[in-house]
Amino acid sequence: MRIAAVQHDIVWEDREATLRHLDDRVAGAVAGGARLVAFTEMFATGFSMNTHTTAEAPDGPTVTWMVDQAARHDVWVAGSLAMRLPERELPVNALCVVSPGGEVHRYDKIHPFSYAGEHERFGAGDRFVTVDVEGVRLTPFVCYDLRFADEFWACAATTDAYLVVANWPAPRRHHWRALLDARAIENQAYVVGVNRVGEGGGLSYTGDSRIVDPLGEVLVSGAGGETVLFADLDPHVVAKVRDQLPFLPDRRTG
């Protein structure tokens, strides 16, 4: 299954302008053979704490755009947004994976980024989600989740590829790259890291998106500007690596 990681800029808190900017990115990714097109964390608004402005309903404009793009191009689409749920006091940072038929799979970020005050504006998720995307078992995570290896470990046995969408700022770019590589090596799975570029909320972002294979080799990477990264994710490669190097059964969780 070919994935396209879209490393893109975001018009700060301007959903309509950003989505217009991204329209052509989906078409370009599909032209490159992608079956899953992945955008960044809060890909339409930027990583904003102004949830009174940015948060929307599950059937709001961003998810509606994703469903429309998925149907129009017969492709899977993924990205996160600030989502307001009727049963929750605070919005969640929801990573949605949308099928070509319009089915929306949602993972709510388990670890709000307290250093930036995210925990004061967003509620925490409480469950993992794994989606079968054309034979690839895909487990999504969001940005700060990447620092918590135990969450990735918990899903390893049923995961071929992890998708990590982010707004990870430039000053800690080395952490981003090192942790993506580590999660791939530890879990013998593909890791797809999709990060934004540009300026937003007083922070600078350099992208550094990358796709890492189950042995920790970087298949493709990009930094500095807008780009689309492509890679083929093969569950048979994951199975072969785990069979030849059976490290996971030695893991102790107690």
Rank of each mutant, 00 (worst) to 15 (best):
G101S: 15
V67C: 01
P100H: 05
D68I: 11
A44E: 13
T40L: 09
E103N: 08
M42P: 01
P58Y: 14
V77Q: 03
A44C: 13
R106A: 14
E89G: 11
F47G: 04
S99G: 03
V98Y: 05
E120Y: 11
D59P: 08
A44P: 08
T62D: 11
F43Q: 11
N93M: 13
Y115K: 15
G60T: 13
E89S: 09
H52G: 15
V104T: 08
M66I: 09
E118F: 07
P86Q: 08
F43S: 06
D108E: 14
C96S: 12
H73S: 06
P91W: 00
V92G: 00
T62G: 11
G46S: 14
G117M: 10
V92K: 00
Y115A: 15
R106W: 04
V63S: 05
V63F: 10
A55M: 12
N50D: 15
V104G: 08
K109C: 02
P112A: 05
S48C: 13
F122H: 02
V98H: 02
I110T: 03
G60S: 13
D74E: 10
I110K: 01
T51E: 12
M66V: 10
A55D: 07
S48R: 07
P91Q: 01
H105V: 07
A71C: 08
H52D: 14
H73R: 09
T53E: 14
V67I: 09
H105R: 09
Q69W: 08
Y107G: 05
V92P: 01
S99Q: 02
E120C: 12
